[in-house]
Design a protein around this nucleic acid. Structure first.
Lengths: 95, 95
DNA sequence: GTAAAGTAGTTTATAAAATAAACCAAATTA
DNA sequence: TAATTTGGTTTATTTTATAAACTACTTTAC
C-alpha cells in the first residue's frame, strides 16, 4: 500500500532544489537560494547531502572574482526523483 | 514559487494515517498500524501529534475487554490535507 | 490458580534531520 | 583603511523520527 518515501528527497528544501534542477539541469547556489528562500547555511548543508547521495553534481569555481557553486542533477537523481513522486501518489489519494 | 509544506503532514507516517482516514473517516489504532506497517510506539506518538494539531479526533474505549483507540479525521484535518497536497504539486513538477 | 504468552497500547531514550547562528575569506564601496 | 557585501562553510541547537522498554491488562495452557 504505502511505499517507503526516500528520506533524502522527503525534505522540503532538498525536494525544492531537486525540483528546480530537474527543470534547468544546472543552477548556481545563489539562484537556488533565491528561488527556495532558504538560508545559505541550510542550503549548503542540503546540497552536500544531495551530493553525497549522488543525486547532484557540484562544481566549485570562481566567477568575476567571487566563488561560485554550480549544481547539476545526475541520472541517478532524476531516477530517484521519479520514484519518489510515484511513491507519493499512494499517500495523496490521487487515483 | 514553493509554498510551505505543513510540517505536521510532511511526515511519512502521519501522512499515511491521514491518507487512510480521509478514505474511511474512522479507523482503529490496530487497523492503522497494520496498514502503515508502523511500530505501535511510533504510531502512538504520531497520532498524538495529529490530535494536538486537531487534524484528528481520538476516542479511547473498550471493546471485547481490550482497550480500543478510534481515530477520525476532522474538518480542519481535511482542509490541511488538501492544502498540503496542493502545495506539493509545485515541488513535483506536475504541470 | 498460576505461569507464560498475547493484545493494545504509552512512555522514555536515542538517533537523525532541519534549522539557525556564528564564522571565514575574499571583494567591493565609502 | 574601515565598513559592508558576496558567497559561502562550520558548528550548535532544536525538532523529528524511531526504537526500545514498559504498563496494564486478557487469554490460554498447564
Amino acid at each position: 500500500m504505502f511505499k517507503e518515501l526516500d528520506p533524502i528527497l522527503h525534505s522540503q528544501l532538498r525536494l525544492a532544489v531537486m525540483s528546480l534542477l530537474i527543470g534547468v539541469k544546472e543552477a548556481e547556489f545563489t539562484y537556488l537560494k533565491e528561488k527556495t528562500n532558504a538560508t545559505a547555511g541550510n542550503l549548503s548543508v542540503q546540497i552536500q547531502k544531495l551530493k553525497e547521495a549522488e543525486y547532484i553534481e557540484v562544481v566549485k569555481q570562481f566567477k568575476d572574482n567571487y566563488p561560485q557553486t554550480i549544481c547539476k542533477i545526475t541520472t541517478k537523481g532524476i531516477g530517484a526523483f521519479e520514484t519518489y513522486v510515484n511513491a507519493l501518489q499512494d499517500y495523496l489519494n490521487i487515483k
